[in-house]
């Protein structure tokens, strides 16, 4: 554990809390992509199966548990409790276009051809693109509420901080994992356009609105 990883994990946790609070307080999931949330739930469920096989630390187990439970809770709020507020007309991204390539890639490029390892690899690939339906939804409606922008900023920062963690670990521990690193870089690049809008607009008190 180093400061970059801890900051990344906390940023990830913050994103999840912001999203749940937004939905709970406003009693609405307007502007949130259910498709992205389904993909994140698949990511956590396929990656954290090692909860049953490997113990790393109390911290590790606790965070995995929180991510799995909160992603299922988010799905419950979106698709059951506040279903009427779900913006499904704009949330039209076809997730099979992400799922199928990630399955194929995980079968082809992995560290070890075992069930758990291929599922882990699949989850890493899928996480890197899981935000696309959300970004697609924002681009379709042309705007995002500030609370949604804060959520996206925290979620995007997490993998960016992990890149610093990976640089640190390579230097300090000679440890590296190319699959995680390359997917993490792809994931962070997908947020760059959003980061730019967030810094130039949302932080100056303006609403995130895309140019017409």
């Amino acid at each position: 554990m180093n400061v970059f990883r801890l900051a990344g994990d906390l940023s990830h946790l913050l994103a999840i809390i912001i999203l749940l609070l937004k939905i709970w307080k406003t009693r609405s999931c307007a502007g949130i992509s259910g498709k992205s949330q389904i993909l994140f739930a698949i990511v956590y469920l396929s990656r954290y199966l090692d909860l049953f096989t490997t113990f790393i630390s109390v911290y590790n187990t606790f965070m995995k548990f929180v991510f799995v439970v909160s992603s299922l809770g988010t799905l419950y709020l979106m698709y059951l409790k506040f279903r009427a507020t779900y913006d499904h007309n704009h949330d039209s991204f076809r997730i099979e276009f992400l799922l199928v390539p990630c399955v194929v890639l995980a079968l082809l490029i992995n560290h070890d051809f075992t069930v758990l390892e291929v599922l882990w690899t699949f989850s890493i690939y899928l996480e890197s693109v899981a935000i696309l339906p959300q970004l697609f939804l924002v681009s379709k409606t042309g705007e995002a509420e500030s609370i949604t922008s804060h959520y996206l900023f925290a979620l995007g920062s997490y993998r960016a901080l992990y890149i610093l963690n990976w640089i640190y670990r390579y230097v300090a521990e000679s440890h590296y994992d190319l699959i995680a690193i390359i997917a993490g870089i792809v994931q962070t690049i997908l947020y760059c356009d959003f980061f730019y809008l967030y810094i130039t607009k949302v932080l100056k008190g303006k609403k995130l609105q895309l140019p017409a």
């Binding site: 090692d50 965070m63 560290h111 070890d112 992990y162 994992d177 699959i179 995680a180």
Partner: peptide, 10 residues
């Protein structure tokens, strides 16, 4: 690459 038998990151 560095083969990982266990993934210690989240």
């Amino acid at each position: 690459s560095n083969k990982e038998s266990q993934h210690d990151e989240l």
